[in-house]
Simulated assay, not measured.
Amino acid sequence: MGALRWAGKEVTTLSDESTERPHRFRRERRANVLGGRQHRHIVKVTPEEESLLLAKAQHARVSVPRLLVEAAMADGRETATDRQELAIQLFGAFRLLSALSNNINQMAKATNATGELPDELGVTLAEVRRLAMRIDSLLDGYDAR
C-alpha cells in the first residue's frame, strides 16, 4: 500500500506490489474432470530442462504437467493461465483506479467548498497517469501474445 497526504490526512492507495494473486485465484492443478484422466504421458528431460520447467511453472504458479498441457494446447495462442494472469492484473489496476477516483472526488469536493486547489492534486493526477500507462502496457503485452 502506498500513501498520499491530503487535507492533513494520510490517504492510502494501492501500489504495484499489490498485484499479488488473491487466494481465490490460486490453483496450481487443473480442475478435476468427470471420470478422471485416463491417459498419462511420461516426458524425460535433462536436469537443465527440468530447472527451466520448474522455474516457468513456479513463475506461472502452476504445476509442471499443467504448464506442459497448456503450452501444447495453446497452439501459439495465450494459455488459460496467461488470460487469468491478465485478469488478475486488470483487477488490481481497477482497485487502484477506484482508490484514486475516491481521492479525486474528495479533492473536487474540497475545491468546490473552498475555491482552492489542493496541493496534492498534482501527485494524484500523476498517479492516474501512471495507472493509465500501466493498463496500456498490460494490454500491449496481451496483444503481443
Score class of each variant (00 low, 15 high):
residue 1 M to G: 10
residue 3 A to D: 13
residue 4 L to H: 14
residue 6 W to D: 13
residue 8 G to F: 06
residue 9 K to F: 06
residue 10 E to K: 11
residue 12 T to Q: 14
residue 12 T to F: 04
residue 13 T to D: 03
residue 14 L to N: 02
residue 16 D to P: 01
residue 20 E to T: 09
residue 20 E to K: 11
residue 21 R to G: 02
residue 25 F to E: 13
residue 25 F to Q: 10
residue 26 R to A: 04
residue 28 E to R: 06
residue 29 R to K: 10
residue 29 R to N: 09
residue 33 V to I: 14
residue 34 L to D: 07
residue 35 G to T: 01
residue 37 R to G: 11
residue 38 Q to L: 07
residue 39 H to I: 04
residue 39 H to K: 04
residue 39 H to F: 09
residue 40 R to Y: 03
residue 40 R to I: 04
residue 43 V to K: 00
residue 43 V to D: 00
residue 45 V to Y: 02
residue 48 E to W: 00
residue 48 E to A: 07
residue 56 K to G: 02
residue 59 H to N: 09
residue 64 V to Q: 01
residue 65 P to M: 01
residue 67 L to P: 05
residue 67 L to R: 02
residue 68 L to Q: 00
residue 75 D to L: 13
residue 76 G to Q: 05
residue 78 E to K: 11
residue 83 R to A: 15
residue 84 Q to M: 14
residue 86 L to G: 00
residue 87 A to Y: 06
residue 87 A to C: 12
residue 88 I to R: 12
residue 88 I to Y: 03
residue 91 F to W: 14
residue 96 L to P: 00
residue 96 L to S: 11
residue 96 L to H: 15
residue 97 L to F: 10
residue 99 A to R: 09
residue 100 L to A: 12
residue 101 S to T: 15
residue 103 N to K: 08
residue 103 N to E: 11
residue 103 N to D: 11
residue 105 N to L: 07
residue 106 Q to A: 15
residue 108 A to T: 14
residue 109 K to M: 13
residue 110 A to K: 07
residue 111 T to M: 13
residue 114 T to P: 10
residue 114 T to Y: 08
residue 118 P to F: 06
residue 119 D to V: 13
residue 128 V to Q: 04
residue 130 R to V: 06
residue 138 L to E: 04
residue 138 L to F: 08
residue 140 D to C: 01
residue 140 D to Y: 07
residue 141 G to L: 00
residue 141 G to Y: 03
residue 142 Y to W: 15
residue 144 A to L: 02
residue 145 R to Y: 04
